[in-house]
C-alpha cells in the first residue's frame, strides 16, 4: 500500500490533479472565478449546479483546444478559445433552461457569465494548448473540482447561517434567527475570505512580498 502510494505520487496525472484541486486551486491560489464564487454561493444546490456547469465547460473546451492545438494559428488563438468557450456555455445554458428551468433561473445571468470565468480561458491558454488530450482531461476536471469544492464550502456556511437549511432541509433548530446578511453579497465576501485564508494556511501557500 505504502509503495503504491509512493509511486502514485510520482505519476503525472496525480500531480496535475493535486495542483488543480489543492496546491494551485484556481480560487484560493490563483484567485480566478471570484465573481461567481461570491454570487451563486448562497445555496448549496446553486453551488453544485454552477460547479457542474463550469466543469463541463472547462473540460470540454480544454479538450477541444488540446485536440486542435496543432492547427490553431497562434495569432488567432485567443479568439479561437473564446469562440469554443462561448459555444459550450450557450449549449449548457440552453440545456439548463430546457430541462432544469428552476436552477437556470436561480443562476440567472451568472450562467451566461461562465464565458468570462477566467478559469476556463486560463486553463486553455496555460495548459490545454501545450499538452496532449489525456493530461488536459485531468487538468480540466481537477481545476473545476477545485473550483467546485470551494464554492460548495462557501455555500455550506452561507446557507446554514442565512436560511438555517442545507440543500433545503432544515438543519438549525426552530429558534435559529436567519442571519440575512449571509444571503447577500457581503456574506459572500466574509465567508470566501475566511475560507481562502484557511486553505492557504493549510496548503502552506504564502505570498512572498517582493523585496
Amino acid at each position: 500500500m505504502n509503495r503504491f502510494w509512493k509511486r502514485l505520487q510520482y505519476t503525472k496525472w496525480f500531480n496535475i490533479s493535486k495542483d488543480g484541486i489543492f496546491k494551485e486551486n484556481p480560487i484560493v491560489v490563483a484567485v480566478l472565478g471570484i465573481c461567481s464564487a461570491l454570487a451563486v454561493t448562497n445555496r448549496v444546490e446553486n453551488a453544485i449546479a454552477m460547479g457542474l456547469a463550469v466543469m463541463f465547460v472547462v473540460t470540454a473546451s480544454s479538450l477541444v483546444v488540446s485536440a486542435i492545438r496543432n492547427f490553431i494559428p497562434s495569432r488567432v488563438r485567443m479568439i479561437t478559445y473564446m469562440v469554443i468557450i462561448s459555444s459550450f456555455v450557450i449549449l449548457v445554458q440552453m440545456f439548463l433552461e430546457a430541462f432544469f428551468p428552476v436552477i437556470a433561473a436561480s443562476l440567472g445571468a451568472y450562467l451566461g457569465l461562465i464565458v468570462t470565468n477566467c478559469i476556463v480561458m486560463g486553463r486553455a491558454e496555460a495548459f490545454a494548448v501545450k499538452n496532449p488530450l489525456k493530461y488536459t482531461f485531468f487538468d480540466g476536471v481537477a481545476n473545476s473540482l477545485g473550483y467546485m469544492w470551494i464554492l460548495i464550502a462557501v455555500a455550506f456556511f452561507r446557507e446554514i447561517l442565512a436560511f438555517g437549511t442545507l440543500l433545503n432541509f432544515r438543519v438549525m433548530p426552530d429558534t435559529w434567527v436567519n442571519w440575512t446578511v449571509m444571503a447577500l453579497a457581503p456574506g459572500g465576501f466574509f465567508v470566501l475570505a475566511l475560507i481562502i485564508w484557511g486553505v492557504r494556511e493549510w496548503a502552506k501557500y504564502f505570498d512572498v512580498a517582493a523585496e
Binding site: V76, T80, V83, I84, S87, I90
Partner: peptide, 20 residues
C-alpha cells in the same frame, strides 16, 4: 481556420437550439 471553426460551432448551437 476561422471560417471552419465558425461553421462548426454555429452548427452545434443551431442543433442544440432545435432540440431545446
Amino acid at each position: 481556420f476561422v471560417f471552419a471553426m465558425g461553421s462548426i460551432t454555429s452548427l452545434l448551437i443551431i442543433g442544440m437550439d432545435a432540440l431545446t
